[in-house]
Amino acid sequence: MSFDPKNYAKYEFFTISALSEGVAHVQYTNPKTLNAYTNQNWRDYGEIMTRLDKEEDISVIVISSGVARAFSSGLNIKEGAMTMKFDGATEKERLAKFEEFIVEFQNACTVPARISTPTVGILNGINYGLAIDLASAYSIRIGVEGARFSIAEVNIGIAADMGSLQRMPGIVNNKSKLFQHALLGDVFDAKEALEMGYLSTVVDSVDKGLELAGAWGARMAQAPQWAIKGTKKHIQDILSGKSTDEGLADIAKYNAENIMRVMKL
């Protein structure tokens, strides 16, 4: 069955469309909260990404914001973990339940890194807290002029726990800057994010970002999908901790199987 955006109509605040042939576009638009995420929102996000990865005619997923002022202002604290109710559970049971909640949240944020479909994020306006967690799992990040970034969790008294601290060390080229921004919870701009290697490029507007992502996506869609998805997977494997030797062994098996299949050897 071919990709049909209508199948994704149930997700509140998310609009799913085709940016170009083979390129899905996920847009999150919740201006009232500057694109903060409730528990339902991040669960929907993880489910959408998982479903799109299974669409046979989707080669690339582009993620953007429909809010001019923000990609995301982070987690909606009023409806997040702080509102959990434990209903008389013991301390051990409360701890286990809270840890289970955090792991579920992490798994939703991790979906773009885990799936085989490449992802491109267009990061505009405010990118605080959870926004960095989400974007750090993307294959490619495009910044928009005026974008502001913050690993902001220390400002509310917690350590970032949704992936920023685990993924950014493998992404950025300036570890001192990473420590600085993570420990201070301060704000840095798109130019600095580009210099750190967090962004691929910076464009003038979200529309320009969509144009660029669409062009890149169209090129990827024209290539054999086993090659594109295999390339994404094997880079991600190294970022996720596999050794060079393990990566070489995996790609040898992967290419041998696929080349033989394609060439009917």
Rank of each mutant, 00 (worst) to 15 (best):
F3A: 01
F3Q: 00
D4C: 05
P5M: 07
K6M: 08
K6Q: 13
Y8M: 00
F14L: 00
L19E: 05
A24N: 02
Q27V: 12
P31Q: 03
Y37V: 00
Q40V: 08
D44A: 06
I48Q: 01
I48G: 01
M49N: 07
T50N: 13
T50P: 00
K54N: 13
K54W: 06
D57Y: 01
V60D: 01
V62Q: 02
V62Y: 02
I63C: 08
G66I: 02
R69F: 10
A70F: 02
F71Y: 10
L75E: 14
N76T: 06
K78N: 14
G80R: 00
M84W: 02
D87F: 11
D87G: 06
A89L: 15
A89V: 03
T90H: 02
E91W: 10
E93R: 08
K97D: 07
K97T: 13
F101Y: 15
I102K: 14
I102R: 14
I102T: 09
V103P: 02
E104H: 14
F105S: 12
Q106D: 06
N107H: 11
A108H: 12
V111E: 09
R114D: 11
T117C: 11
V120N: 06
G121R: 01
G121W: 06
G125W: 04
N127C: 12
Y128T: 10
G129Q: 03
L130M: 11
I132F: 00
I132C: 07
I132L: 14
L134W: 03
L134E: 10
S136F: 05
Y138L: 15
I140M: 10
I142K: 05
G143H: 04
G143Q: 03
I151K: 04
E153G: 04
E153M: 13
V154G: 05
N155Y: 02
A159Q: 09
G163P: 09
S164G: 08
Q166V: 12
N174C: 12
S176D: 15
Q180I: 08
H181Y: 15
A182S: 15
A182I: 04
L184K: 15
F188A: 05
F188N: 01
D189C: 10
E192L: 12
A193T: 07
L199V: 04
S200G: 12
V202K: 01
D204E: 12
S205K: 01
V206N: 03
D207P: 01
K208A: 15
G214E: 04
M220P: 00
A227V: 15
A227E: 12
A227L: 15
A227K: 14
G230D: 07
G230Q: 03
Q236H: 13
D237V: 01
D237P: 05
S243H: 05
E246G: 03
A252E: 15
A252N: 14
A252H: 14
Y254G: 07
A256Y: 13
V262A: 13
V262D: 11
K264V: 09
L265P: 13
L265F: 11
